[in-house]
């Protein structure tokens, strides 16, 4: 039944709400959001959900097939690996480690990057030019290569690879922040605020930063997908997390030894990384197009 409108109700959603309305239009983005929330939930509730300890080895249950196999049991849903560790528990803990660390790294990189970018964007002259040139040169070097060099200096290990990836992520944030701050400083509202006598620090925190948050979120999702891929790649190459720890990339390289007997041990961790990155990318994509559509209206 069509409802007619008696009153010309005016609907003025807040920018955030409008973004959400635009975001909701895309099924892919919503699917990505649900998937991402699922992984977040898995990360937070991991220890409660996992049926076994991820490190406990069981000699009586080596390389058990998954539950749907004729020889499999319900005790281990996805079976066990070559040391008798429950694959499902390792997978849950693996998602926890990989996603948790990646989010942490992105936050740290974002803080440092935004600070440096603001500095580069607000200053002028030789100092800014030097910062810019340095940044441009770092941007060109592949993140993985930076990570490899840092790991080579510090030695392998999860913490060292975390340092490496954080350092490798920082330049993107600096770059986008700098460009954004520069553009924003030309705008009238900043000029108005400046005419009111606002200082540089006040300008940045009260005029520029609130407008930058959306861009930072989008940039953050991009950085998050890079961070997940890089940390698992380093784990896979034996440069990051070391074998007993349930990190998805490390699990993948461990599973390689028994890939013939239990293909699931390389299929599952890889699939988890893929879905994680996919969800982050879908959310990031959806957010970006939502913001673009919002500005169009």
């Amino acid at each position: 039944m069509a409802r007619f409108n008696l009153y010309q109700e005016e609907f003025h959603p807040s920018p955030l709400k409008r973004t959400w309305i635009e975001f909701r239009q895309s099924h892919a983005a919503l699917f990505g959001l649900w998937l991402f929330l699922f992984f977040i939930l898995l990360m937070v509730l991991g220890p409660l959900l996992a049926p076994y300890d991820p490190l406990t080895q069981d000699i009586n249950a080596l390389l058990l097939p998954p539950a749907w196999d004729a020889n499999g049991g319900i005790n281990h849903l996805f079976g066990t690996d070559s040391l008798g560790r429950d694959l499902l528990s390792r997978l849950i803990y693996g998602c926890r480690v990989t996603l948790g660390i990646s989010i942490l790294l992105v936050f740290v990189a974002m803080l440092v990057g935004v600070a440096m970018g603001a500095l580069a964007g607000m200053t002028k002259g030789v100092r800014s030019s030097i910062i810019n040139h340095l940044l441009d040169s770092i941007m060109v070097i592949p993140t993985l290569l930076i990570a490899i060099i840092i790991v080579a200096i510090l030695g392998t290990g999860l913490v060292n690879s975390m340092w490496a990836i954080t350092l490798a992520l920082i330049p993107q944030f600096v770059h986008t922040t700098r460009d954004f701050v520069r553009d924003e400083l030309q705008k009238d509202y900043v000029m108005a605020s400046r005419l009111d006598g606002a200082g540089k620090i006040y300008l940045f925190f009260n005029a520029v930063l609130p407008n930058m948050i959306e861009m930072l979120v989008v940039q953050g999702t991009m950085a998050l997908s890079v961070a997940i891929l890089d940390i698992s790649a380093l784990g896979f190459l034996n440069l990051g997390a070391q074998p007993p720890s349930p990190e998805l990339g490390t699990m993948l390289s461990e599973g390689l030894k028994v890939a013939y007997i239990s293909p699931l041990s390389i299929a599952l961790p890889g699939c988890a990384i893929f879905l994680m990155v996919l969800s982050v990318n879908l959310v990031g994509d959806g957010l970006r197009s939502a913001l673009r559509n919002r500005f169009k209206h």
Partner: peptide, 16 residues
Amino acid sequence: GVSVAGYSVPVFWLAL
């Protein structure tokens, strides 16, 4: 959609 999936694949897993 296919392209989002394409650049979300970890390249080492794809190779395997």
